[in-house]
Design a protein around this nucleic acid. Structure first.
Lengths: 243, 243
DNA sequence: CGATATTTTGACATGGATCAAGTCTAGTGG
DNA sequence: CCACTAGACTTGATCCATGTCAAAATATCG
């Protein structure tokens, strides 16, 4: 099958852990579900895992048994289609929850894999839900995190449904820029995204070829620069209008 | 693609119909947030509202101040674009939560309006969250409801990103069919959806013209029938394959 | 029964997909 | 240090699914 080129690009992003160029970093605070809670509760076993870039965290249909917070690195969740195409559902950044996208009945609705090397802190669902049912605050934090994810997903729906290729690419890059900013602070106009054009294609529902052309045009128009993971929003105002 | 993975399992909900052609119906139970709780808590004022078809429940950017359960009728949430197009984000069916799609900071992320006449049971956010923080079960139910919405949204993302017009239409109609079934029970192959081709177009990101052509073709191929809101899935197997 | 929305049909335009090379880059091994 | 290689990125030529515009047919409703 033609899967090869579409599925493996990640494997080549495998820059090693904890280097300055790559976005692997420690994370002290997690505003989604308090990691202190999370780590305390996960105390009945070794629950922090380090995984290499390209690792599969879970596959579509796997048992729905564990939730994680991503402490470091980037991951993605995606759905695979028979024709070999995949849709990237969301990019998972440090501090985000992952593993709640399933149900007891049907297992995980989507697969997840590490884009860079990652560090995960995970716990059994049974325990997670038990904790939720004991602690309203914890459950509320969880609900808020999921609401945030849902809002991102709805934005994505809007972009995919109504926008041109330009708009979808702009939308995605601006969103990622904002999320990275929110995590890292600072205001260097350049941010580092460990993704390539194939990721953008799979997230926006375009072909890599057309992503390339679209980026080229945006570059020529002075909207942004994106090369080897370095993203600079040159004209945020005009970009926002496009998005 | 396996149908099961595309369509989130919606736990079966209540029953009881009020008028035969129109989907307005009484609702005894709500598995998302227990309406008994909901109504009890909303006791400090008249909180059940009846609204006519076409009413605006809230607009994009409105204050984020109230959540509702939809007791009867259909509603939709949508995002409007400058060019006049709109993206329907989700269809809200009896038993669903509505009004949690926003944040204190930015207000409601999307607008909502009634498709049919609706009955809403609503309460202030402040009270809703207070109740959540006192009752883990309530908070958990809320979290589960939100998770279900997020999964529907992700399905929608996958459909919009990777599927042809046929696939998107099939996807939407099959999903709605299942949701209605889950609510109404029974197994009449025909279900009543109070939507028209324009709704389908706005939800799938197509033009009404092309929706029409697509439906015509599917009808000719013996896949389904959809006319004046009456939907019959003639060949669910093949439809699932298309979707 | 006229007025207004919805659905259907046709002719034509176009954004993006597809196919096919070619170039550039970062690893790898000698 | 260089040659080799496999991905990733570019570019060009061509095709087709879907959008756009226009108008007729049909349903809905006061």
């Amino acid at each position: 099958m033609v899967l090869g080129t579409r599925l493996s690009p990640i494997a080549s992003v495998p820059r090693v852990v904890l280097c300055e160029r790559c976005p692997i970093r420690r994370h002290g605070v997690c505003d989604q579900v308090d990691p202190h809670d999370f780590e305390r509760m996960a105390s009945d076993g070794p629950r922090v895992r380090n995984l290499a870039a390209g690792s599969v965290l879970f596959g579509e249909g796997d048992a729905f048994d564990r939730v994680f917070t991503l402490q470091a690195g980037w991951a993605l969740t995606s759905k695979l289609f028979e024709d070999g195409h995949r849709q990237i559902i969301r990019f998972v950044l440090p501090g985000d929850l992952i593993g709640f996208e399933g149900s007891e009945a049907t297992g995980m609705a989507y697969g997840a894999e590490a884009i860079t090397a990652v560090r995960l802190c995970g716990m059994e669902h049974s325990m997670f839900f038990k904790e939720c049912s004991c602690s309203p605050r914890f459950a509320m934090n969880y609900a808020e995190a999921v609401t945030r994810e849902a809002m991102l997903a709805w934005n994505h729906v809007g972009a995919l449904g109504q926008q041109s290729a330009r708009g979808r690419v702009a939308n995605l890059l601006v969103e990622l820029h904002q999320r990275v900013r929110a995590i890292e602070g600072g205001d260097d106009p350049a941010v580092w995204l460990p993704i390539n054009q194939t990721h953008i294609a799979d997230a926006t529902g375009m072909t890599p070829v057309h992503v390339c052309r679209t980026l080229k045009r945006m570059r020529q128009e002075g909207l942004l620069e994106f090369s080897k993971g370095r993203l600079v929003l040159i004209d945020p105002g005009r970009l926002a209008a496009v998005a």
